[in-house]
Write a protein that binds this DNA or RNA. Structure first.
Lengths: 217, 217
DNA sequence: CCATTTTTCAACCAAGCAGTTGATGAAACA
DNA sequence: TGTTTCATCAACTGCTTGGTTGAAAAATGG
């Protein structure tokens, strides 16, 4: 009987490509953590989705927590990079704020993984985000832009006085974030699909209006 | 050598008290699910915290999912009951809304478990909440009160036109909910403790102002 | 007091899981 | 070409965990 092994070298021999393997693992991990959270995620599943052996998770990252941390750092870098592309120079404070609110809504719409992983991080008492703070100033660039825009708008008489930039930052984030983060239960409660094109458009408009109206002098 | 068993009847013999046992299990489960989510929660831990044998979880509820569902239903009943105590009759729409916004903030402050369990439910795509919808109309009473108050305020010229009650419901909830749900990461980012008395008071005031200002005609 | 039902429990099991081991073979470089 | 380094893998280990079993103890009811 002829020996026939599934383990012989493939017709297309696999190449050694550590960078690509690492990246594939990160992508798979992000999906898996988003779907199931840190506790619910399965290392086997991450490896399978990445199409590599489970041991490589340990080889490249150390353990489950370490790859989770790497995913978190990756997401954070993405956000900071994105926020650095914001350009509101030359815009009046109200136009600028409008644009910023829209941007933060759009970002969350395009990155559902971020929302759900951040939720998990919060349940875990931000243990890893706190750790991230050792590497970098995690105060997002957006907060600084908000502060500048707000105070400039107040000076120009476009916005009312007495609004704290930090509170505003939390509120603007909240209005968009909660919509996406609570979408499943909200959809169930309201009995409509909040992910539909029209629902998204309606929410986006409401959020912008709500903020701008609130800041009127 | 004298026999000495840890299993002999206790000095204070345990009483059979199914109702109390069930309740103790629910309380423990709620804590455990809040701390670790559905996937992360340990049935052994629930039983231990309740001070009873693990098998009682299965005896009274069936399986892990079933007790999770029971916790969810319990929380929901609590909320509905709480919202039924709202009484804004006789108040002008603006006073009424102010009171409602404060109440929803206060409720979340007093029920951190609720926030964190609802987050988990959302990550699970609201699978259980959807199920809850088979038992009852889960559209919360609060939504109806909002609707009435809003339209009355518009009629009386106290609020601007064109605000959808559903969007308003989402926004008011968002402004408070996100503060609590995102507290760990927000605290890390802003570098201050958002759970402190003064921070809570400041946020509460901001939320109320933010909403009321936004609704001005 | 005895039979029956309900509540409680310790011990156990099978499956699933994070993490380990030891080997193979491709690159790198001498 | 020989040696070293490192990416890759299959198979395994030990522990955790959801769930089961069979029976003792407490109430119930005659």
């Amino acid at each position: 009987m002829a020996e026939f092994s599934l383990n012989e070298p493939c017709a297309v021999p696999r190449r050694r490509d550590p960078a690509s393997t690492r990246r594939k693992l990160l992508v798979a991990a992000r999906r898996e953590f988003a779907r199931n959270g840190l506790a619910g995620a399965r290392v086997d599943e991450i490896a399978a989705q990445a199409g590599v052996n489970k041991q490589l998770v340990y080889h490249y990252f150390g353990d489950k927590n370490a790859i989770y941390f790497a995913v978190l750092k990756w997401m954070y870098d993405e956000i900071v990079q994105h926020e650095h592309t914001f350009n509101v120079d030359g815009l009046s404070p109200d136009k600028a704020l409008r644009k910023l609110v829209q941007s933060s809504f759009d970002y969350l719409e395009l990155h559902p993984d971020f929302v759900v992983i951040l939720n998990d991080e919060n349940r875990n008492d931000a243990a890893h985000v706190r750790n991230l703070a050792h590497f970098a100033d995690i105060r997002t660039p957006l907060l600084r832009i908000f502060s500048r825009t707000l105070s400039q708008g107040v000076r120009e008489g476009l916005f009312r006085k007495g609004v704290s930039p930090e509170q505003l930052y939390i509120s603007i984030t909240a209005l968009s974030y909660f919509y996406f983060s609570g979408m499943p239960t909200l959809s169930a409660i309201l009995g409509k699909d909040l992910r539909s094109k029209s629902a998204l458009r309606a929410r986006r408009k409401h959020v912008v209006d709500f903020v701008m109206q609130s800041l009127r002098p």
